[in-house]
């Protein structure tokens, strides 16, 4: 089509940018009746020498971080302090959900054994099977992302720590020897940069706002920081990934995350609270499937519809 043809209705003073959605093509409204593979047509061959099972489990770790964080942020829908922030939090949740889909699909493509078994005739695609049909013990997210939202101050404090950590991680993962992980990371860096700036600005605003807003954002930080050390504890799967070149050792992120966090805290005039770190449970943490009670409740809500209709078509 010649671009000029779009200009023929320029003279209509009531025209809108969305006019093209109306009339003509009803197919626009029939969309969404089928599942779609987010990695359709992507070459998912593993890099030489990569341990497929470890790579799949690594993708579950990063994918679960994004999925659970996305669910928590989406709980703010229609509850945020004002409309702009309601939309902003939903935007951030959507970015993270997109990253989760790609990462869970990557996990399933690397090693189908990680995908829970469903009936033969189930139409559920692998990434949905991973999201909706795994129990809490099979989730590999860090515990930081699963704890309750608390108030807006606590949500901002968590998002600041999470996005600072995730940005430092994705920056390095752009160099992954797995081209799929490298591409997901390159895309994610641009998105998470926005998330971190949003959280950093709100942290500063709340800390320098009223006595009340400052008290609450600092109290939020005190709830979040006990989960800080877990972000940098190296799981054997992450060690394997770093050694084989397709993953990142989280211990290597600590210095950068500390610097950024201290920069926000210094600008905000907030001293970093001394936080006693939550311990490991039976020798493990979130990356080993050891979670807090909050995750079970979150999953009960997130998974109940899919589990009630395992053959459902959406």
């Amino acid at each position: 089509m010649n671009p000029e043809t779009h200009e023929t209705h320029q003279t209509d003073p009531h025209e809108s940018v969305y006019d093209g959605l109306l009339g003509g093509d009803d197919a626009h409204w029939a969309f969404g009746t089928d599942f779609e593979d987010p990695l359709a047509g992507v070459d998912t061959t593993l890099p030489a020498g990569a341990d497929a099972h470890a790579l799949a489990r690594y993708c579950l770790m990063l994918g679960d971080d994004a999925l659970v964080a996305s669910h928590r942020l989406s709980e703010w829908c229609s509850n945020a302090p004002d409309l702009e922030d309601d939309i902003a939090l939903a935007n951030i949740a959507l970015d993270l959900l997109g990253q989760a889909r790609l990462l869970l699909a990557r996990a399933a493509a690397a090693d189908p054994e990680v995908v829970p078994a469903l009936p033969e005739d189930s139409p559920v695609p692998p990434e949905d099977a991973l999201a909706f049909f795994r129990d809490d013990l099979a989730f590999r997210n860090v515990r930081l992302v699963e704890i309750q939202n608390g108030d807006f101050g606590q949500t901002i404090a968590r998002l600041l720590v999470l996005s600072t950590h995730r940005l430092a991680l994705l920056e390095r993962l752009r160099e992954s020897t797995d081209p799929v992980l490298a591409a997901i990371a390159a895309k994610g860096v641009a998105e998470v940069t926005y998330h971190r700036d949003y959280a950093g600005r709100w942290f500063l605003t709340l800390a320098q706002g009223t006595e009340q807003s400052r008290t609450r954002v600092v109290a939020g930080l005190e709830v979040v920081l006990p989960h800080y050390d877990e972000l940098f504890a190296t799981h054997p799967v992450e060690a394997t990934g770093a050694q084989q070149g397709w993953g990142v050792d989280p211990a290597a992120l600590r210095a950068e995350v500390d610097v950024v966090l201290d920069q926000v805290l210094a600008t905000s005039g907030v001293e970093r609270p001394q936080a006693k770190q939550v311990g490991r449970v039976a020798g493990g943490a979130g990356r080993d499937g050891r979670h807090t009670e909050a995750l079970s409740k979150l999953l009960a809500q997130m998974q109940s519809v899919a589990r009630a209709h395992p053959r459902g078509q959406w």
Binding site: L94, D95, L97
Partner: peptide, 12 residues
């Protein structure tokens, strides 16, 4: 965007 919900519609 990673989470662009319009991808499936574009494909269709």
């Amino acid at each position: 965007y990673s989470g662009c919900p319009a991808m499936a519609a574009m494909r269709d």
